[in-house]
Simulated assay, not measured.
Amino acid sequence: MIYSSSVLNPLEISLSHNQFNFFQSRHCVLLGYSRTCMEYGLHILELDVGDEVLLPDFICDVVLSPLNSLGLTPIYYSVNDSLEPRYERIERQISKKTKAILTVNYFGFPQPYDPIRAICKKHGIWHIEDNAQGFLSHKGDQPLGTFGDLSFTSVRKTLPLKNGAYLCLNHPTLIGRFQSSRYMPYWEKEPCKTFYLKRFLRWIDMNTFLPLSKFRKEKSIPKPGSGELEQKPFGMDPIAKWLLFHYDLQSEIKKRRRNYALWLQFFLHSPVQPVFDHLPDGVCPFAFPVYVEDQEKWLNWGWKHGIEIRTWPTLPLWVYHNRPETVERWKRLLLFPLTKSPQNILKRTQ
């Protein structure tokens, strides 16, 4: 069922197997970006100014924008090199002000959810599932984005869309609050400018042998803290919305899994260390993440061969100045793209 609100025109959707065979029927709100979905979800949680939200220290700084907007306090817990939370430390960081824990499905791979659920149940706090990179992924038969009390998922990170993300409400209390119409998201229309022309050129780059990416302006590594400022709450672009409901999602899943396997094969006897050396059934990977000793070397290698390798994440400033272990991990991590088959490039470089 799809309908528009007569008040502020958010798009509420109950996704079904008929629309997406990877997603069970859920209560969702379709908006422009994950950060907008997150802020709307925090409103529905009814948190107060000064309340604390636990989140991993290995995270993109843009998640701080909705927290700052609502006057909430981030408390950072650490993760290991497998990007799993150090659960014993989380317990020690929970206080009377702690109202929620946020976990991240890094690069489309699921987290061990049972320990987090146990902690949330024990302390009576909400579980926010950051599924920004997990669109189309499952754990078993259950889609990612359906394990937390609420989640937000980015569509545009997986599909070539102008924008697009959705907030998913999985807890009966939160669904009831949403249906009471007390919480209606405000959003603006985002200017398109030359986006679709750029996307068309990128499609040519990804689906032909023309190495257009070699002619792009070289990107610099984003500075920590650059995404912490308040962001405008954009709605989903109408063209992106239409494309979402007409996209061949199964082909996208197969392409990403195939390209992930090719990168695994390429680095099989290399000092480069994949973060995940196994691709579980059901996972639609966002990227191929690896640890390297020399980031600059591999960034230059990618530029030379027309492969858009990039760093991740743009760390929060506090983490950058106070968590040296996390900063060292950030300096070693690179993401190899899965949008374009690396097969021909790999043949030339082997």
Score class of each variant (00 low, 15 high):
residue 7 V to T: 15
residue 8 L to N: 14
residue 12 E to R: 14
residue 15 L to G: 08
residue 18 N to M: 08
residue 18 N to Y: 10
residue 20 F to C: 12
residue 21 N to V: 06
residue 24 Q to D: 13
residue 28 C to V: 11
residue 29 V to G: 05
residue 38 M to R: 00
residue 41 G to V: 01
residue 41 G to R: 01
residue 47 L to T: 03
residue 50 G to K: 00
residue 54 L to H: 02
residue 59 I to T: 10
residue 59 I to Y: 04
residue 70 L to V: 04
residue 75 I to C: 10
residue 78 S to N: 12
residue 84 E to P: 07
residue 100 A to L: 10
residue 102 L to I: 14
residue 108 G to V: 09
residue 108 G to A: 07
residue 109 F to E: 06
residue 112 P to T: 09
residue 127 H to R: 03
residue 129 E to H: 00
residue 133 Q to F: 12
residue 138 H to Q: 11
residue 140 G to T: 02
residue 144 L to A: 08
residue 146 T to W: 00
residue 147 F to G: 01
residue 149 D to G: 03
residue 151 S to F: 01
residue 151 S to M: 02
residue 152 F to S: 02
residue 153 T to W: 06
residue 173 T to L: 15
residue 178 F to K: 08
residue 178 F to H: 15
residue 179 Q to H: 15
residue 189 K to D: 15
residue 197 L to G: 07
residue 200 F to M: 13
residue 202 R to S: 14
residue 205 D to T: 03
residue 207 N to R: 14
residue 209 F to L: 14
residue 218 E to C: 06
residue 223 K to S: 12
residue 223 K to I: 13
residue 225 G to H: 04
residue 227 G to I: 02
residue 229 L to N: 13
residue 234 F to Q: 00
residue 237 D to W: 02
residue 237 D to K: 01
residue 239 I to F: 12
residue 251 S to P: 00
residue 264 L to K: 09
residue 267 F to Y: 09
residue 267 F to S: 06
residue 271 P to Y: 02
residue 279 L to Y: 12
residue 280 P to L: 11
residue 280 P to K: 13
residue 282 G to V: 10
residue 285 P to R: 02
residue 285 P to C: 03
residue 298 W to Q: 05
residue 298 W to D: 11
residue 302 G to M: 08
residue 310 R to C: 13
residue 313 P to A: 04
residue 313 P to E: 08
residue 313 P to V: 01
residue 320 Y to A: 14
residue 325 E to H: 10
residue 327 V to D: 06
residue 330 W to V: 10
residue 338 L to A: 04
residue 344 N to S: 15
residue 346 L to N: 01
residue 348 R to E: 15
